[in-house]
Design a binder for these strands. Structure first.
Lengths: 150, 150
DNA sequence: ATAAATAGTTCATTTATTTAACTATTAAAC
DNA sequence: GTTTAATAGTTAAATAAATGAACTATTTAT
């Protein structure tokens, strides 16, 4: 596929992914309400899209231990953004859902982020962006595969 | 540039950047020695490439407050990876450099990361990768611009 | 010579994380 | 069916990373 000496391409990718990430995260953080972190927003997003999920789902998605999710849920529960309900059939399982306040906050913040990302992507021609996202998607699959077989 | 309704492109980008990041970080972490974190490796990398830098340089690059750098340097100094020396001309300034142990550890870890990233990028044709990196680079510049004017 | 700016540190607090030990519940083995 | 395994989640102690405010030391500007 690639030539033998791909060192400079690897260097470039490492440098770019680091920088783009750092700047991107910084801009995303600017859209947040003062009492929320980006991790918390991503968590709200996951629960919102799933409508309801378990701590184990979150742990898998965010690639952290379940105890980290417990701690995160405690913080977000204290702020009144999430609810916990036990499964009646399997009493071990906990279902996480957003409260009205949690959903409202998510929607508000997500709208700002969409606006931000939209204004960034607006700097690209549709074809260039499509090509980029297609390769990005492929990269995603490659990483998933590696992570699966480990 | 883009059509009016770019909502799904924005969604796709948000989803992909989150996922690729999470999986990528997870794989990078796997290359690390048990007594080091990825943040610490990125810090070693910056100092190595700069040969010598100040806490302020690091704070700017990593977009954190200087006190965060002090704490990071304390941790890394305890492990014997970095040295601090005062500027003789301007006694306020501190120069950070890697110790031999720090450099050796950096080299060892960076080699593993290069190998990993190489094996990932190897899944792409040279042209596709080149196009991808070119757009990524442009994205980087766009983000830099936004971050500059804020 | 005094005031303002800069470089860095300290300290208290918060968030996010891991590991190990634990509770409660369900599923499997025999 | 009862004992054993596995699963879902929590608790608690420890560490890393970050912020913000107050502080020291030094240099630059007025």
């Amino acid at each position: 596929m690639l030539p033998i000496d791909i060192k400079h391409l690897v260097d470039q990718y490492i440098e770019l992914s680091f920088s783009v990430n750092k700047s991107g995260e910084s801009l995303v953080r600017d859209q947040m309400n003062d009492d929320m972190t980006s991790d918390q927003h991503y968590t709200l997003r996951y629960i919102y899209q799933a409508k309801s999920c378990t701590p184990s789902d979150l742990a898998k998605r965010f690639q952290v231990k379940k105890s980290a999710i417990t701690a995160m849920m405690n913080r977000m529960w204290k702020k009144g953004w999430v609810q916990r309900t036990r499964d009646e059939k399997d009493r071990r399982v906990v279902y996480l859902t957003l409260t009205e306040a949690g959903e409202a906050l998510y929607m508000k913040t997500e709208e700002k982020i969409h606006h931000l990302v939209g204004s960034i992507l607006n700097n690209f021609e549709q074809e260039e962006l499509g090509q980029f996202l297609s390769t990005y998607q492929k990269l995603h699959r490659v990483l998933e595969d590696i992570n699966k077989n480990k």
